[in-house]
Simulated assay, not measured.
Amino acid sequence: MKGIKHIVKGAPILPILQADSVEQALNIAKAVEASGLKNLEVVRRTDAAAASVTAIREAFPDMVVGMGTVLSPEHAKEAVEAGSQFLVTPTVSPRLLDGLMSSGVPFIPGTSNPADILMASEYGLTELKFFPAHLSGGAPMLKALGGIFQNISFCPTGGISGSNLNDYLSLKNVFAVGGSWMIPSDMVKAENWQGITDTCKQALEAFEGLRP
């Protein structure tokens, strides 16, 4: 199975979307797409999550859409049935990893320490989420882990913002970053879709600035 970095389009940046309704999710997705970003993670934290994935896939076929906060094989099955192109978890366990392995779609399991990383690597996985990144040591921790797990690359999320984005993207063992800072809850509540587009554009420009 191909890893998630092989299906990510354009800049390796994953805005994290949490919507209370399908209509809200579609408005957010439209705002993200307008920024030039092509990837989106819909977290499984509201009743609208699965339906939102389906609706976004239909309305924006050029976007790569996945589901986050997957905690069980049952969640993984639901996400795939909704049309998720990738899966993201906040943590790992043998049962969850078995479910992810049999899901049929790329995934990034959540890790926060060397024990988690070792467990995932024993399953042959080389692309992992690092969460919560800031509380787990941030970019310095990821840099240190790179010396131990030299074949592992990470997608850090949690506590990432425009002010520290470059600290993560500049690391050799970071293949993508994710975060909700690009879709601020206050902008969602205010239906400030242009503001979300602008915030996503800033993240894209930060990535472009790191290119040789």
Results as ranks from 00 to 15, higher is better:
Gly147Ser: 13
Glu41Leu: 10
Leu97Asp: 07
Lys9Met: 02
Pro106Trp: 07
Val53Ser: 08
Ala31Tyr: 01
Asp186Arg: 11
Pro106Thr: 07
Phe130Trp: 15
Leu17Val: 10
Gly147Ile: 09
Ile160Gly: 06
Ala76His: 05
Met63Pro: 03
Gly99Ser: 11
Ser136Pro: 02
Phe86His: 05
Asp167Trp: 02
Gly110Cys: 08
Lys38Glu: 11
Lys129Thr: 04
Pro132Gln: 01
Pro212Asp: 03
Lys77His: 06
Phe149Ile: 03
Asn113Tyr: 00
Thr89Cys: 07
Gln18Met: 14
His75Trp: 13
Val177Asn: 14
Gly137Asn: 05
Thr157Cys: 13
Ser103Gly: 08
Ala76Ser: 05
Arg44Trp: 05
Tyr123Thr: 11
Gly36Arg: 12
Ala11Val: 10
Met63Leu: 13
Glu33Gln: 14
Leu96Cys: 13
Ser121Gln: 14
Gly110Val: 02
Val53Trp: 01
Glu191Val: 00
Ser163His: 11
Val8Tyr: 14
Lys2Asp: 00
Gly158Asp: 02
Thr54Asn: 10
Ser93His: 07
Val88Ile: 15
Ser161Gly: 13
Phe131Ile: 05
Leu37Trp: 04
Ser35Ala: 04
Leu204His: 08
Gly146Val: 10
Ala31Arg: 05
Asp47Tyr: 00
Arg95Ser: 14
Ala48Pro: 02
Leu26Cys: 07
Thr91Gly: 12
Pro106Glu: 10
Pro140Gly: 10
Val8Glu: 02
Asp198Val: 06
Asn39His: 08
Gly162Pro: 01
Asn151Asp: 15
Leu142Thr: 11
Gly138Gln: 08
Asp198Leu: 05
Ser121His: 12
Asp186Tyr: 09
Ala203Glu: 04
Ser103Asn: 10
Glu58Trp: 00
Thr157Asn: 08
Ser93Phe: 12
Ala25Cys: 07
Met101Asp: 07
Phe207Arg: 09
Pro109Leu: 09
Arg211Asp: 00
Leu97Gly: 13
Ala203Trp: 01
Ile196Asp: 00
Leu96Phe: 06
Met182Asp: 05
Thr111Glu: 02
Glu33Arg: 14
Gly99Phe: 06
Asn39Cys: 11
Asp186Cys: 02
Phe154Glu: 03
Val92Lys: 00
Val105Tyr: 09
Gln194Ile: 06
Arg44Val: 02
Ser93Ile: 12
Met101Tyr: 01
Ala49Cys: 11
Ser52Arg: 07
Ser121Thr: 15
Met1His: 14
Ser136Thr: 04
Asp98Cys: 13
Asp98Gly: 14
Asn27Lys: 15
Thr46Glu: 06
Gly68Val: 09
Ile16Phe: 06
Ala34Tyr: 00
Pro94Ser: 14
Phe149Tyr: 14
Phe207Met: 13
Ala31Ile: 03
Glu58Arg: 14
Ser121Arg: 15
Val177Lys: 12
Cys200Lys: 07
Arg95Thr: 15
Ser136Tyr: 06
Pro114Gln: 11
Met1Ser: 12
Arg95Lys: 15
